[in-house]
Amino acid sequence: MTEALSLVPKAEAKQSMKDFKSDQEVRWCPGCGDYAVLAAVQGFMPELGLAKENIVFVSGIGCSSRFPYYMNTYGMHSIHGRAPAIATGLASSRRDLSVWVVTGDGDALSIGGNHLIHALRRNVNLKILLFNNRIYGLTKGQYSPTSEVGKITKSTPMGSLDAPFNPVSLAIGAEAGFVARTVDSDRKHLTEVLRQAADHPGTALVEIYQNCNIFNDGAFDALKDKQQAEEAVIRLEHGQPIRFGADGSKGVVRDPATGDLKVVTVTAETEARILVHDAHAASPTTAFALSRLADPDTLHHTPIGVLRSVERPVYDTLMADQLDAAIEQHGKGDLSALLAGNDTWTVVG
């Protein structure tokens, strides 16, 4: 077992996917990408082998935030944007729990943006699954903070004006130790990313591109269509050269003049310069540069996989250490002595 979950009790018996299905009817729209993610998570959980009573899913508001109701673990469906804050209180006081946050692009990046960035910098032991469908679904189709500029929606009949966030860039900028991106329809990839996230001590952010077939259908087709995906998707694997396209015909190199990354056709001359992905690099610079390769409109050159996985001191561990240190230095708290303080006088009856 990993250090991240070393304090979480193990399941006594072998678990299966159905152990993690609650008795509640799943109420997402037929065809929603959320079904695929739910199945992947329920299918992956037995692999962790944790006592399911020690697993908690906390969500905010939005379509994806109904997720906890469908997991047969402890769960809280909270209020809009606040799941990272609530989960922080739980995880920082209960290190024997495996705490997961389920959120969406509106929940995490708009109303809850502040909590997300602070959870990331603090590095509380949380696994944050950010379902990004680039639209507001539950409120029936307004643009979101990840929607492309000019998007026509109910609230933007002449096109949206705001530039979108790139959640991966944002997370890296917020000092995240673990940042990954995956796609709802690629169960194998999704599961592998979950595995690495679960393994990571501290906050892990997993952006999951998720299709909303009602209000933003096909938003990620460029990454899903077999033909297009070859050119559009850059699959990152730690320690491997960053190549993609038909037969690995494209690669990522560093421009010696600017230090920036760019896509080149692999040739005898460029092959030696193809960047080898190092998810564990201490500096976030290259991971950030990788996150910027994707075109926000066409999604061409979208890296998926683990962009960054670096260990940093974990908030809840540090918090517990301070409690231990305080007891070591001052002894276990004595209420009587505390209340009395140093300056007392006595009134005799």
């Binding site: 909270s78 920082s92 602070h118």
Partner: peptide, 22 residues
């Protein structure tokens, strides 16, 4: 802290009560 008291200075008032509720 030697009474087992955890204090969390949050990023804002909302997170402060959120963490307490968690």
């Amino acid at each position: 802290k030697n009474f087992g008291v955890r204090t969390f200075q949050a990023e804002d008032e909302i997170a402060a009560i959120g963490a307490a509720l968690g």
